[in-house]
């Protein structure tokens, strides 16, 4: 039984990070119907920027661990958001009227570009966050040791998800985003500046991805320029699993994917766990073609 609960927390920790990245995927998809394949790379850049800021500013000498992380998070958030807006401006906006898949290819091109520019700037070697950044506190839940930072990561994902959901559902700007998601033309007629809405989406989505990158850097320590691709694919899977375009869906999908992987590895085979996760995804989609929480909408005709 302890084994089961241990694997449960393992799965949730991994799933929390998938969920956080998946939120960014889902935001962009919801409004633009674009699979932003460069999202994983923005996540990776977030991890690199966090490390650069941390070492360049020497923050750890002046502030408490949580102060450092909070300040870093704000800075990474802002920088990756700027990058996201630039990406949208340069690579996606000119393609808004074009076929959906044209933008997908542009996103793939941007992804290759980001990966290689990071490799050229930082080198191909692994980079490592300082080890003493976070106190390695362990809390005991029902007698089981759980590192505090895992709980914090999970908590951070939940807080961001709830915050985002409230923002989208309850505020005026959020309503504008939802309107643009449903019908850009009609939204424009209602006086909504759709370009600004899309820019905003490209602030929020990449910013969340960047923060996720920072968290991965702090938690696992080791980062490299190819990490965005692997996490990006997992997060995309999670977003689809939950129903892409749906914010709670991204959360559910992320956590579920983490759990499936953990339990597949624990009780079946570690080497086959990813294959098993994809099998579950395919089965779920056969039964529910728009994911777990996705709405059944007819394709626009």
């Amino acid at each position: 039984m302890e084994f089961f609960f241990q694997q449960l927390t393992n799965g949730l920790a991994v799933g929390g990070i998938y969920a956080l990245i998946a939120l960014g995927y889902t935001m962009v998809y919801g409004v633009l119907k674009l699979i932003n394949f460069a999202h994983g790379d923005l996540f990776m850049i977030g991890a690199y920027l966090g490390l650069t800021l941390l070492t360049a500013l020497g923050l750890a000498d002046h502030l408490s661990p949580f102060g450092v992380i909070a300040l870093l998070a704000v800075m990474v958030l802002a920088l990756v958001a700027i990058l996201g807006v630039v990406l949208e401006r340069v690579a996606y906006r000119p393609l808004r009227q074009a076929h959906r898949l044209s933008a997908v290819v542009s996103a793939l091109g941007a992804s290759i570009f980001f990966q290689n520019i990071v490799m050229l700037i930082y080198g191909a070697k692994f980079h490592v966050y300082p080890h003493d950044l976070m106190p390695r506190t362990v809390v005991h839940i029902f007698g089981m040791p759980v590192p505090l930072i895992r709980i914090l990561i999970l908590l951070a994902s939940v807080v961001m998800m709830v915050g985002l959901y409230t923002f989208i559902q309850r505020t005026k700007v959020g309503t504008a985003i939802r309107a643009a998601a449903i019908d850009q033309g009609a939204a424009r007629l209602m006086g909504i500046n759709v370009d600004r809405v899309i820019a905003l989406v490209f602030v929020i989505g990449p910013a969340l991805g960047g923060v996720a990158g920072l968290m991965v850097g702090i938690y696992y320590g080791q980062i490299n320029f190819t990490m965005g691709w692997i996490y990006g694919l997992k997060a995309f899977t999670a977003a689809i699993l939950g129903g892409i375009g749906n914010i709670p869906g991204a959360m559910v999908g992320g956590l579920l994917l983490g759990l499936i992987e953990a339990f597949a590895a624990a009780y079946l085979s570690i080497a086959w766990k990813d294959a098993f996760a994809f099998c579950v995804l395919i089965l779920i989609l056969i039964v529910r073609p728009t994911g777990l929480l996705g709405e059944r909408v007819a394709e626009k005709v």
């Binding site: 920790a13 696992y220 990490m227 953990a262 590895a265 570690i270 080497a271 766990k273």
Partner: peptide, 20 residues
């Protein structure tokens, strides 16, 4: 006797299993 997936970040699941 098993294999992990290179390139991932979190190997807690595997370590837990080996420990068991």
């Amino acid at each position: 006797y098993d294999a992990l997936t290179p390139g991932e970040r979190d190997y807690n699941t595997i370590l837990t299993k080996i420990k068991a």
